[in-house]
Design a protein around this nucleic acid. Structure first.
Lengths: 115, 115
DNA sequence: TTTATATATAAGCACTTGATTATATAATTA
DNA sequence: TAATTATATAATCAAGTGCTTATATATAAA
């Protein structure tokens, strides 16, 4: 893993995006699972526009990418982002959030887009 | 280095504190040099109350500690903080800011508190 | 003791942020 | 085609943030 020092301004912008509890949890989930918007709405018990607006910030910054699959739009981490190394380091320090995915599955709300 | 997973809320609070450009630069400087308030005022070309308020946030969170030396109060990283590992990882990704210390020295404004 | 220097705190204010409600668009299903 | 489902965007608003000015406190120097 090569060493690429990030400048202060870039780093501050990335950290600001990660410093919201909802977005940080989203990214931790995306570390291991692609998710669509309606899954996030269910997980966070938050309005759909609120979720979309968080995802937009992450997408505008290039931290996540979207992919439409039928009626759903799935979001995933963009591993080509220049700050990917920093982001992965931070996520690695955090406790897993996979229980939320498990709850989705158990309540039958996990979206399976294999069609 | 043992693995202690941080919870989401704690992590978000730490990242929010680091997501301000001034505070992030302060911490990068403190990684290698203890500094007093008036040095920060000179480095950031910002009012003394603004600097004090940034330092207060870091101090209230326990990320830095203060030590009075004569008329000056020096700030240093608190390596005993529960999030120290996360903070050090983030700082390690960032480019050095030691040129700012060098400029202080060259302009004769570096405080030497050995008395 | 008076003056100067270093720092902290309080009040006020402009700007940002994250939510809500309302509405538009795109894909799917009936 | 019409109705439903998933998502995005726009407008609005309350709360939070970071600065400024004014003032208080603590130490040092004259």
């Amino acid at each position: 893993m090569e060493k690429i020092a990030m400048n202060i301004e870039e780093t501050a912008i990335i950290l600001k995006l990660l410093s919201d509890k909802t977005r940080l949890t989203m990214l931790k989930l995306l570390e291991t699972n692609a998710c669509c918007v309606c899954e996030f709405v269910d997980i966070f018990q938050m309005s759909q526009p609120a979720i979309s607006q968080h995802l937009r910030k992450l997408r505008d910054a290039g931290i996540v990418r979207e992919e439409r699959k039928g009626q759903w739009i799935f979001y995933a981490l963009n591993n080509d982002h220049f700050a990917n190394q920093l982001i992965m380091l931070i996520l690695a320090e955090m406790e897993t959030q996979d229980d939320k995915i498990q709850q989705l599955i158990e309540s039958g709300k996990r979206i399976n887009c294999d069609q």
